[in-house]
Design a binder for these strands. Structure first.
Length: 269
DNA sequence: CGCATTTGACCCGG
DNA sequence: CCGGGTCAAATGCG
């Protein structure tokens, strides 16, 4: 467990001359996150406001734009840094996966990925509080407890990966246990299927994912309203986990500076 | 009854 | 050898 990043202290401002592109990426990330937050805030507004859905639509639009720009920039930087390969992508897909305890196990001699260095697929890492509704259908295919982490990592894959050959994957891991729990979401392989789920907005059923069916919610906020009770995602762990709560005491709420890990096995602990 | 999730086993890279 | 990622049989839910 001596595997620690030599950089025990992450400096917010790297001394090396950052490209304008990197700066733009950071800002875009921040903007994307903020927009997501805005979307949540909007979503929690009373539906009675007719403009709410329109606003949500706009927010979603903005988010997608930001995401696209971010993605493009990151791809550019990625291939600039790594090899000069033009991103062939997972063209040859070996049918065999990892598991399969069948007796007949053909050893996969073909190199799945990772040529000579940095050929890893695109990887977008960000944090959000609502990993469930990003507009895609995800199918969970695994869950693993990561060392030195408090919460397990959940592995999702595009629901149409079979028919549409969509290799998009998504790893979700709870970052902290605060009440608006944040989740670190790692998104790999852009969606090749354009099967975005029915848009949330529109007039009709507004309760697609969030069940406000019985929530009267006369008042916008209840003083004791804290148990949001996420309809999915993340288990509630055993009640024996306490340890010392000294980790990450850096501020509560208010996020002026986010910590974006980029292809680095960094951990909070 | 069909589908998504669960969960232990397996495989691979470091 | 260990840890992370994936598969696929079993189970639960609609």
């Amino acid at each position: 467990m001596a595997t620690r990043m030599p950089n025990s202290e992450r400096s917010p401002s790297p001394p090396s001359p950052l490209d304008q592109r990197d700066a733009a990426i950071q800002e875009l990330q921040k903007g994307s996150d903020l927009v997501k937050l805005l979307g949540e805030q909007l979503g929690r507004l009373p539906v009675q406001l007719g403009c709410r859905d329109d606003a949500l639509t706009s927010v979603r639009d903005i988010s997608m734009s930001l995401d696209s720009s971010l993605y493009a920039l990151q791809s550019e930087r990625d291939q600039h840094r790594g090899s000069s390969s033009g991103a062939g992508g997972p063209g040859a897909v070996t049918s065999d996966g990892g598991g399969g305890r069948s007796s007949t196990r053909a050893r996969r001699t073909t190199h799945r990925r990772g040529k000579h260095g940095e050929e890893h697929p695109r990887r977008r890492i960000f944090t959000t509080t609502t990993p469930e509704n990003d507009g895609y259908h995800w199918r969970k295919y695994g869950e693993k407890t990561i060392l030195n982490t408090e919460f397990p990592k959940l592995y999702y894959r595009c629901g149409y990966s079979d028919e549409r050959k969509c290799q998009a994957k998504k790893y979700v891991q709870q970052a902290n246990r605060k009440h608006p729990p944040e989740f670190t979401v790692t998104l790999t392989n852009e969606h090749t299927c354009n099967t975005l789920l029915p848009d949330q907005p529109s007039s009709s059923s507004t309760s697609q994912v969030l069940d406000f069916t019985k929530a009267s919610m006369s008042s916008p906020m209840d003083p004791h309203a804290d148990t949001a009770m996420l309809k999915e995602e993340e288990e509630e762990e055993a009640p024996s986990i306490d340890e010392s709560t000294r980790i990450m005491s850096t501020s509560v709420s208010s996020y002026g500076a986010y910590d974006y890990n980029e292809l680095s096995p960094q951990s909070w602990k």
